[in-house]
Nucleic acid binder design. Structure first.
Lengths: 140, 140
DNA sequence: ATACGACCTACAGCGACTGTAGCTTCAAGG
DNA sequence: CCTTGAAGCTACAGTCGCTGTAGGTCGTAT
């Protein structure tokens, strides 16, 4: 038997078996060869491509962006502009997300500090602070 | 006619009409009164609760956590511990997320810098850098 | 009385998987 | 060669938090 089984690909890339099949359904992986019994057998090219996908996913690219990047890989010349654009978009997204999360953190700390945790019998002021949107005007 | 229509609640809270009905289905809002014709009519208590939910959602609490916070509001005494725990968990989540995004940003910049964008005819090195998981060991 | 916007229910779809049910196949040990 | 058990197969439902659609009804102003 030559070729890697789907389980072996899974072990080597950390991508779950069901997810690999899902990627195939989405067109990110080609229909691999099959054994007589109908089980998938992969070559090293598929392993490389799956590693690429896994890494790009960890970097937060969505599957459409990854499909586009794969298409660029297949036409190596003149792909710089597109690849750079996709990567730059992603960096911008990440920076925006960080900025928003930082403001969130500030406000969550404010909410938590609204109550000292000791005024027994009184409603917790955290709950009140959560209801109060006035205090965080412009933060989100 | 007394009571607010669902559209009025929507306008006042910024929560879409369909979303308000969805919250009702999820048990976050009570079954409100209805007109003879079957349209929902809300009081101020529902408006307040919806504002609470909207604000908590903006802070990234999931609907289960919000349901728990609402339950705490209804039993004001001794709710401090729970409310603080939920809020602290959220802060921890947000900080983790920021940390991971920061590492992501560093690596995305590395990926983008892998190619100067000018070596025409050669495959773009951004694509290679995306495939190469070795260079970012331990980063994610 | 009519027009028209707002409302109603019920259900399908999104993204990126995950989990389940109920099978079949492969590879190793006896 | 035969059995066993892990690994594989398909197909479809469920996750989360909505959003959108279809096809109808209601409320209010003129």
């Amino acid at each position: 038997m030559h070729g890697h089984s789907i389980g072996e690909l899974s072990r080597r890339t950390g991508v779950k078996v069901t997810t690999i099949r899902y990627y195939e359904g989405r067109g990110l992986l080609p229909d691999p060869g099959r054994t007589d019994g109908g089980q998938r057998r992969y070559g090293d090219a598929e392993l490389d491509r799956l590693s690429f996908i896994a890494h790009a996913r960890q970097l937060g690219f969505d599957l459409d962006a990854i499909a586009e990047l794969i298409a660029l890989q297949e036409t190596p010349q003149a792909a710089h502009g597109d690849a750079h654009r996709i990567a730059k978009n992603r960096i911008t997204e990440v920076r925006d997300r960080i900025e928003r999360l930082r403001r969130l953190e500030v406000e969550l700390v404010r909410v938590l500090n609204a109550c000292d945790g000791h005024s027994d019998g009184q409603p917790c002021r955290v709950l009140h602070a959560l209801a109060d949107h006035q205090a965080c005007r412009g933060e989100h």
